[in-house]
Amino acid sequence: MMKSHSPEDTGVEATAPAGTYPTGRSWQGLLFACLAVFFFSTSPVFIRLATPFTSVEIAFWRLAIAALLVLLLGLATRQSLLVSARELPRFLFYGLVTALHFICYIASLSFTTIAHSLAIVYTSPIFVTLFSALVLREALPWRKYAGIAVAIIGVAFMVGFEPHYSACQPQEGHCMLLGDGLALLSAICYGIYSIVGRGERDRHPLFRYTFYVYGLAALWLLPVMLYFAFRHAYPLPALGAVLALGILPLGLGHTLYNASLRTLHATYANLIATQEVTGGILLGILWLHEVPSVTALIGVVVTLAGIISVLV
Rank of each mutant, 00 (worst) to 15 (best):
A67I: 01
T98G: 02
A16I: 06
L261S: 06
P125K: 06
P170L: 08
I153C: 12
A85M: 07
P17C: 09
G306L: 07
A296Y: 08
A218G: 07
L311G: 08
R143I: 11
E87S: 12
Y122A: 02
N270E: 09
G147L: 02
Y190K: 00
A238V: 06
Y257G: 00
L30I: 14
R231Q: 15
A217I: 04
F228H: 15
L236R: 10
L71Q: 06
A67H: 01
C189H: 03
R231F: 11
L304W: 12
E13K: 13
P249R: 04
L75V: 14
P249K: 04
W61A: 00
L31D: 02
E87C: 05
G215Y: 00
L140V: 10
L311E: 07
W287T: 02
S132Q: 09
R48T: 10
T51G: 12
L134I: 14
L130P: 04
S80N: 15
G215H: 04
Y21L: 13
R201T: 10
I126Q: 05
A218Y: 01
V294I: 13
Y165G: 05
A229Q: 10
L82R: 15
T54K: 10
R90I: 10
G280Q: 00
F102H: 08
H254P: 02
I285L: 10
A18H: 11
P237W: 06
V300N: 01
A218I: 01
Q169F: 09
A167V: 13
A85P: 03
L304E: 06
M225S: 06
Q79L: 12
T15R: 14
Y212C: 05
F40H: 03
A115Q: 05
G299E: 03
V213E: 01
Y214H: 10
L35E: 05
L68C: 13
F161Y: 14
E87L: 13
G191H: 05
Q171T: 12
R208I: 07
I192H: 01
H116I: 07
A133T: 11
F131R: 01
V135H: 03
S194T: 15
P89W: 04
A244H: 03
H116E: 06
A64T: 02
A229S: 15
V310I: 11
I106L: 11
R203M: 10
I192D: 03
P7Q: 10
L248I: 13
A305C: 14
W27D: 08
P7N: 11
S6Q: 15
L221Y: 04
L88W: 12
